[in-house]
């Protein structure tokens, strides 16, 4: 049996009185794509922030490649091979597109304390990264001049182009046009071939059914359903969402 790329158990997280996660178990195998669906406020983004080290859980266990880990910061998570596209924009607007693509992962040359940015290599790579997503933004342009979709594309490009173990995408197709969405879905499928585990959060059930191997449904901070996509359908999932999320306490 293969070791899951990432596995969490009993994750809890509360914000004051809001119990955003009430004991969540989840695992993703290498090369597997897990879809995460659930109504607004179900706790999807909170789970993702816990997995990416941005929020500390109140309790629970996180394992990467079978090793228990403590994620104290996003730096820890990135070091352990977890790349995240956050739901909210995570670009530094004053930095160029290129600088954003390599933020925290800058290519450098030279040695010791005298290592300098390898601008030439980063330029070439960032152009490839943008081309890969068919983005037309210039790599030298400041990020704030990018359109919403371009910004989204930059965040995605930066997560997929790192040798990660797990790529987490929180509603990555939100601001994207039709062509770009197709391209992103294609790239997500591409992760499978590289043996990268993927968690894909979306409100678009159609997309989830289309690319995912498995789907997990969240309601009020708990996982209600976790099933292979082949054993369910978009219609059934939508039905379930309507039934279970509508009646709040």
């Amino acid at each position: 049996m293969t070791q899951p790329a990432i596995r969490v158990q009993g994750i809890r997280k509360a914000f004051g009185a809001t119990r955003a996660l009430q004991g969540v178990d989840l695992e993703v195998a290498p090369g597997e794509i897990l879809g995460l669906i659930g109504d607004n406020g179900a706790g999807k983004s909170t789970l993702i922030k816990v997995l990416s080290g941005f929020e500390r859980p109140d309790g629970g266990l996180i394992e990467i490649d079978g090793q228990p880990v403590t994620l104290r910061s996003p730096a820890d998570a990135r070091r352990l091979g977890i790349e995240t596209v956050y739901q909210e924009q995570a670009l530094a607007d004053d930095l160029s597109v290129m600088a954003n693509l390599f933020l925290g992962n800058e290519l450098r040359r030279g040695w010791g304390p005298f290592r300098v940015l390898d601008t030439r290599r980063m330029r070439a790579r960032s152009q490839e990264m943008l081309d890969g997503l068919r983005l037309r933004a210039s790599i030298d342009q400041e990020a704030r001049f990018c359109s919403g979709g371009e910004k989204q594309g930059i965040s995605i490009a930066r997560a997929i182009n790192v040798k990660a173990k797990v790529v987490i995408l929180d509603e990555p197709t939100n601001a994207l046009g039709v062509v770009a969405v197709d391209r992103v879905l294609e790239l997500i499928r591409g992760l499978r071939e590289h043996g990268i585990g993927c968690i894909f959060v979306s409100h678009n059930i159609q997309h989830v059914v289309e690319v995912c191997d498995r789907v997990a449904l969240f309601v009020h901070g708990t996982k209600l359903l976790d099933t292979p996509v082949s054993e369910t359908s978009a219609l059934e999932l939508i039905e379930l969402l309507n039934q279970r999320s509508g009646n709040r306490i």
């Binding site: 996003p74 070091r79 995570a90 670009l91 607007d93 933020l103 925290g104």
Partner: peptide, 9 residues
Amino acid sequence: NVRAAKMMG
């Protein structure tokens, strides 16, 4: 953007 900087580790 300190939040983005933190998110990028």
